[in-house]
Nucleic acid binder design. Structure first.
Length: 438
DNA sequence: AAGACGGGGTC
DNA sequence: GACCCAGTCTT
């Protein structure tokens, strides 16, 4: 071998060995049945920030319901959201469908074999466009995600902060230079497969790694300290009060839910009516604090909460809600928020005769005087609709815009974020309502 | 450059 | 509890 012209550099070694390893040991995954661009696209969107094991059942259901790009483009959006329920980052679902519709209109239903056109689709950023171009069309484009940055940081012993956008740019150049001729799709997947199976975040399996002997990070003994990544800001704590509003009369056995605005957090999903408290926001630390936060609050606190729910839901949503009893405390952490929610079972106040506070709360004497005396009397002018609905406050028979009375069986007709789905199912379990019941 | 945007798994 | 994950969009 002529070492001067065919030097087996760490780079060519890496690409060759990694590719061979992948072709030998790649996992069988639903989206690897074929390389149809639509299937690749759906999988890549679902896999953003989401584990393979989590995605698999969602992918199967989604492709069963929307087997073609056209089927997705023509589906009602709530149907698409329902199939995304629980996956999180719901704008992915909306953007995916918007992209499918765009492909129908502009490209006759065929995903274009064109980097710029694919990159311009909604929800398709640098990573996803590279993944689609390489996997579906075998174009030599880099697809750099967290896995790839981890693998390359270690293999090349690089110290750049992978949280910085500029680092991703550099990694893309590096990754592009490593793509073997004619094998972009397999190589990019090999890089990610290695990161998922061997070069894992905590305890990399260097001894089974196909490229260990030239891994600079490993040779420097730094495999566990790489990649360098700036710490994320902790989620901001928020205290909230939610109401499980039980229906009466024709709505007996049902509860009132509402639809969130069509942008922002949990856009267009359904939820329990609730309010954000101004205060608190002290995240419970330690076992004792945790226990205290989960426990039923003292009656004074419950009375304050009841008054708060009545006044604020009236003001924000036009709902006159009377808390009847404690239900549960629920915590839920988003990427940037930490919700601490106290949940009460409540009733809609549809008239003075029904406006009776629970005896325990009244006797506790903790209610503001004016509220304790006349809980139902809140200035009607102060009522503001929750989401641009111009309707008046719902009574026992109304279903104003954005609100629905539903029983357990109607849960399947609405997409709920996990936290509210859990609260509602817990509620129905506790009240003895089973599937097929109401 | 920083923040918004979910949820679940792991050690 | 802290960190991570097959990222993108908005400001």
């Amino acid at each position: 071998m002529n070492l001067s012209s065919t030097v087996d550099t760490a780079a060519s070694y890496f690409s060759r060995e990694l590719l061979a390893w992948y072709r030998m040991s790649k996992r069988t995954l639903p989206w690897r049945q074929n390389r149809e661009a639509y299937r690749v696209w759906v999988s890549e969107i679902m896999l953003q920030q989401t584990r393979v094991d989590t995605v698999i059942p969602y992918y199967e259901r989604f492709m069963n319901r929307f087997p073609t790009l056209q089927a997705l483009a023509e589906a009602p959006e709530p149907d698409v959201l329902k199939h995304w329920e629980g996956l999180g980052y719901y704008s992915r679902a909306r953007n995916l469908q918007a992209g499918a519709r765009e492909v129908m209109e502009r490209y006759g239903g065929q995903v274009p074999d064109d980097k710029a056109a694919v990159s311009a689709l909604k929800g398709v950023g640098p990573y996803t466009s590279g993944a689609i171009m390489s996997i579906a069309f075998n174009r030599p484009e880099p697809a750099v995600d967290g896995n790839v940055m981890r693998v390359l940081s270690r293999y090349y012993n690089r110290d750049e902060d992978i949280a910085k956008p500029s680092t991703r740019i550099g990694m893309e150049k590096l990754a592009a230079s490593l793509i073997p001729e004619g094998a972009a799709g397999d190589f990019n997947q090999a890089l990610m497969e290695l990161g998922a199976l061997v070069c894992t975040p905590r305890t990399p399996g260097c001894l089974t790694c196909p490229v260990m002997i030239h891994c600079a990070g490993r040779l420097a003994g730094r495999e566990t300290e790489l990649p360098i990544k700036a710490k994320a800001k902790p989620p901001k704590p928020q205290a909230r009060l939610a109401a499980i509003i039980e229906g009466t009369g024709e709505h007996a056995g049902k509860v009132l839910i509402r639809q969130r605005p069509d942008s922002g957090l949990l856009a267009s999903l359904w939820e329990l009516p609730h309010v954000q408290l101004d205060e608190p926001a002290v995240k419970p630390r330690g076992r004792a604090a945790k226990l205290a936060a989960a426990a039923e609050p003292p009656v004074e606190r419950q009375a304050e909460d009841a008054a708060e729910l009545l006044q604020r839901l009236q003001a924000e949503s036009g709902l006159r809600v009377v808390a009847r009893r404690w239900h549960a405390a629920e915590e839920h952490t988003f990427s940037h928020l930490h919700w601490m929610m106290r949940v009460y079972v409540a009733e809609l106040d549809t008239g003075a005769s029904r406006a009776v506070w629970p005896a325990g709360l009244r006797q506790a004497g903790a209610l503001p005087t004016e509220v304790a005396q006349q809980p139902a009397i809140i200035a009607a002018e102060s009522a503001a609709p929750y989401s641009s609905a111009e309707s008046s406050a719902p009574n026992a028979t109304d279903e104003p815009d954005g609100y629905r009375w539903i029983g357990r069986n109607q849960m399947r007709d609405y997409a709920f974020p996990n936290l509210f789905g859990k609260i509602l199912y817990d509620y129905w379990d506790a009240t003895g309502v089973e599937e097929g019941g109401v």
